[in-house]
Design a protein around this nucleic acid. Structure first.
Lengths: 198, 198
DNA sequence: GTCTATAATTAGATAGAC
DNA sequence: GTCTATCTAATTATAGAC
């Protein structure tokens, strides 16, 4: 038998996952709360009960997907602590690529909200991207002037093929979400962006 | 004095440029024909007169931005014809990066429409991306299994920093659209993705 | 060629029943 | 905790004046 707290949590999760799908699919403006509700298998009124309004629901969706990413990155950081910088850099990169393949919504979310200088962009940078960029600065050993360039080169090179999976499949014939393709991509990008100096 | 044909062309261009801005900003679903009309300095009724409906206007916007890109790429191809493959590859890459910086709407458009397997994605692949990918296949000397990976690595690494310019500025302090930043990015990406074998 | 007026649909938010 | 009903505003598309 479920407690009220459990029921609450489960319903909220269903709604948040539907919100992640819809917001990353068609953006904040394009997504409708009715569609999200239908997708989650509940009614529109329930969204308001749990999340007050569309803006708050969007924040809950962003929180889920970015906290997941940050936990994943921290775990890898821990796992390879003490090893050589080039090992850490390449392994964290591969781990990031596997995550962005599992969650193509992450980059879609970033692309959707990073192109306009509005309040959602600011919220996302201040709350979630700043800590990620700080870790990148600390661990990836990239010189200051090249840092922004390398950061966006990495993010874009790593994620685009998965975020654009339907297009990639039609254009090239390759399903980028197959496990072989994911590993091939992780291997290629980590070596191209962080070549060994020896 | 303007001919009718000139007037027609000018008005259509104003509308198409406004459409490019709006569609790449908030996507097909998020953009409203009223906002596009206002942005172009005309009324909503006029869009229907010139473009029939929202879908046709979207196609006109896509045509403009992708034909521009393809002309730019062909010009470079011509300019460096006969030179070594590594020269052609790097120079075409740099030229592409300068274009994507000047027209961040290009990648925003791709990201907006490549993530859903709908008819606009199919139209975009069949009409515009296929020729671009064919050129990439012919001129960039990438082995068949790596081709999709390199294509999306290039597109993503080249474009993300410009398409996400507002975010980049707040996150890193760098304005990626300054001419120094554009050249730095072109230099970095062309060297990282296409290292010389010597 | 351009605009105004409007019909039909859909959006987000709220109130209240159960 | 969940759903139904409804309000107000915004949407695309159309018809017709000038």
């Amino acid at each position: 038998m479920k407690t009220r707290a459990q029921q609450r949590k489960e319903t909220r999760q269903l709604i948040v996952e539907a919100a992640i799908r819809n917001f990353s699919d068609v953006g904040f403006h394009g997504a409708s709360t009715r569609d999200i509700a239908t997708d989650a298998g509940v009614t529109q009124g329930l969204l308001t009960y749990h999340f007050k309004n569309k803006e708050e629901l969007w924040k809950a969706a962003a929180d889920k997907i970015f906290f997941e990413l940050r936990r994943q990155l921290e775990d890898r950081q821990q796992e390879f602590a003490g090893q050589s910088e080039s090992t850490v850099v390449r392994e964290v990169t591969k781990s990031y690529i596997r995550y962005t393949a599992k969650r193509p919504e992450l980059f879609r979310f970033m692309m959707e909200e990073g192109k306009r200088p509005d309040k959602r962009m600011k919220w996302l940078v201040d709350k979630h991207l700043n800590p990620v960029y700080a870790e990148f600065t600390k661990s990836f050993g990239v010189s200051k002037p090249l840092r922004p360039h390398m950061f966006y080169a990495l993010v874009g090179a790593a994620s685009s093929i998965f975020a654009l999976a339907p297009e990639c499949k039609r254009l090239t014939g390759l399903n980028p979400l197959s496990s072989e393709a994911i590993e091939a991509h992780a291997d290629l990008i980590s070596k191209l962006l962080f070549p060994l100096k020896d």
